[in-house]
Simulated scan of single mutants.
Amino acid sequence: MPDSICSSERAARRWPVDRLRCLALALMLVSGLGSAAAQSPAPTPETVASVLMYHRVGNADHPSTNVTEAQFRAHLDYLETEGFNVVPLTRVVEALEANRPLPPRTVAITFDDGYRSVGETAHPMLEARGFPYTVFVNTEPVNAGQAGHMSWERMRGLAAQGVRFANHSRSHAALFHRRDGETRPRWRDRVRTDLLDVRASLRDELGDAVHQSPPLLAYPYGEYSLELMDEVAELGFVAFGQQSGAIGIHSNSLALPRHSFNERYAAMDRFRVKVRSRALPVIEQAPLDPVRGSRTAPALSLTLAPTPDLRAGQLACYYRGERLTPEWLEADRRFEVQGKAPIPVGRTRYNCTAPDGEGRYFWFSQLWVHGDGGT
């Protein structure tokens, strides 16, 4: 099977499933065992947690990367009032690596880029509720004293109050993209130098406040490629994108989803659905590489682990205003979808959801990138 979780050492690094469980899943896929409750034990809950991603708070000059103070406060009030389990991002990663779900309604909060509004506006609201959070920092603007970004001094002050930090690259360039005339070895050296330089800077400036075991990375713009995932894996990172969805025990630890919010997409009805979402239990997919050389919309094949309360008959995928009806290649287990419209230059996604019968949605989002990235 192409891109199988059991097919190669490289794929196994992407899908953090222990060898025995991997073999068991392969046997189930081949033999069809586990389709009836009498043939298998009760399934382990598939969802680990939902991770929320923000950039700026209360900075109206940048609406595409900003949520208003009122929107952010409403999000936090909902988490507090509804009794969500807000945990450090490290706890989510530990649970993922141990193939262990966390309590229901667990979330972690993250910010990308290290903007000043995180320390000035978001932090007091989070601190008042005792909510931990992580900031992914790109260091070039910090070292340059660029307006709008927190200084190292400010970040050290937040670190002393329990805030944690992680790698968002030095330059915030689209790391997957090779420059004109750049060979793969030179690209590889540039990317590794960039990420290792940030790892060292964060450790020197912020010490124990940096996620280090394992180190965590948020891809700039949420963009990655198969080649970049290989390099990130060799450096030992667990990595996050910006595609929506909950993290589950089957999730790819080199392309973990986060629910991203900005002014346009931060209304409470949308927030409630996302923060309560469940991980669509994808155990195999093709293709894995989101980078497309052609503008033809890709055919995406997904194989699901058996999940009794997943209403597969109501599963639907969405792409640029299209509703994509899945073609089931194996009933309730393996399907394929493909958009009709060409993919745009830049980023786009297929979003697949299915109800669970209790008002929540299983969710999986697949990123596609065409062009140089970073737009």
Rank of each mutant, 00 (worst) to 15 (best):
T106V: 07
G162H: 05
D113R: 00
L126R: 05
Q71E: 03
P124C: 02
R105S: 12
V135S: 08
R116A: 14
V86L: 07
P103F: 07
G157N: 08
L76N: 05
G83L: 12
T121N: 12
G145P: 04
F84Q: 09
T68G: 12
M125L: 15
Q71M: 04
S171T: 15
N66M: 10
P104T: 15
G148H: 11
F131P: 04
P104K: 15
T121W: 09
E153G: 02
M125K: 08
E94M: 06
P124E: 04
E82W: 12
A98P: 08
V142S: 00
R129S: 08
P141A: 03
R164M: 04
H149G: 00
T106H: 08
D77T: 15
D113H: 06
I109G: 01
A128H: 07
G130R: 10
R91F: 02
F136N: 04
T65W: 02
A74L: 06
T106C: 05
T139R: 00
A160K: 12
N66K: 07
R170C: 03
P104M: 13
R116S: 13
F84E: 06
N138P: 14
E97Q: 15
R154K: 12
T110P: 09
A173P: 00
A166N: 05
G114C: 02
E97I: 14
M155D: 01
T65V: 11
H75V: 09
G83A: 13
G162F: 04
S169T: 02
V87K: 07
T90E: 11
N167W: 01
R105W: 07
F72D: 01
E140V: 13
V118D: 00
D112F: 01
G83R: 13
P101M: 11
E140T: 09
V163K: 00
R170A: 12
T106D: 04
R154G: 06
G148A: 05
E80M: 13
S64H: 14
Q161F: 10
L76W: 06
L89F: 01
N99I: 11
G130C: 10
V137Q: 00
P104C: 13
A173L: 15
V142L: 01
S169A: 13
A128V: 09
R164D: 00
S151K: 02
N143A: 11
A147M: 12
Y133G: 07
F131M: 08
N143V: 08
Y78G: 09
N99R: 15
